[in-house]
């Protein structure tokens, strides 16, 4: 007579649920893939005009955030077809924007514009964020302009 393992119907023998292990592994791989495959496109660099200029040709077509002061006397055009110059004192970049900034946008105010530098040297803005810190100064190269409060009126 063969003695089998105790077979209590209430306590089935332990078995590894391999199906679920595979499923969990697949889910983790998919999440990891989603996170890392798209991260390259999602990162947006903050640059000062000097940093943008020093990138040379490589900067053309790359989406960046350009931070600086709006140069005095440089604003022209209606709100939905605006041109102005962003400067950090050493270098200046001409910006064209079809998106209306908030009204606090004015000469000598701090601004961060998101967009791309065109081959013609004009920065085409897709978003204009006005810094409304009273003490806003142009950040030195490599420092974080993001520490200032962002005007929520123009968040994405």
């Amino acid at each position: 007579m063969t003695v089998s393992a105790p077979s209590d119907p209430m306590l089935p023998p332990r078995r590894r649920p391999w199906g679920i292990v595979v499923l969990v592994a697949v889910v983790l791989v998919v999440i990891g893939y989603l996170a890392f495959s798209s991260v390259g496109n999602a990162l947006v660099y903050y640059l000062t005009p000097t940093e943008l200029v020093s990138r040379g040709e490589a900067a053309v077509g790359e989406t960046v955030r350009l931070g600086g002061l709006v140069e005095a006397g440089s604003i022209s055009g209606p709100a939905t077809d605006l041109t102005f110059v962003v400067t950090d004192g050493d270098n200046a970049i001409a910006v064209h924007s079809t998106v209306a900034p908030t009204r606090s946008f004015r000469e000598r105010s701090g601004a961060v514009v998101e967009g791309t530098l065109g081959a013609d040297g004009v920065f085409e803005a897709t978003q204009v964020i006005v810094k409304h810190d009273e003490n806003y100064e142009v950040p030195p190269s490599g420092e974080i302009p993001s520490e200032q409060v962002i005007d929520p009126g123009n968040e994405p």
Binding site: V30, I31, L34, A35, S38, V39, N41, A42, L43, V44, Y45, Y46, R65, G142, E143, I144, P145, S146, P156
Partner: peptide, 19 residues
């Protein structure tokens, strides 16, 4: 690296919506 970057909403949408 000392670079200042931001991670935009599109990245979060890409990753989180399928989940």
């Amino acid at each position: 690296s000392g670079d200042t970057i931001s991670v935009g909403a599109p990245w979060f949408d890409t990753v989180t919506v399928p989940i």
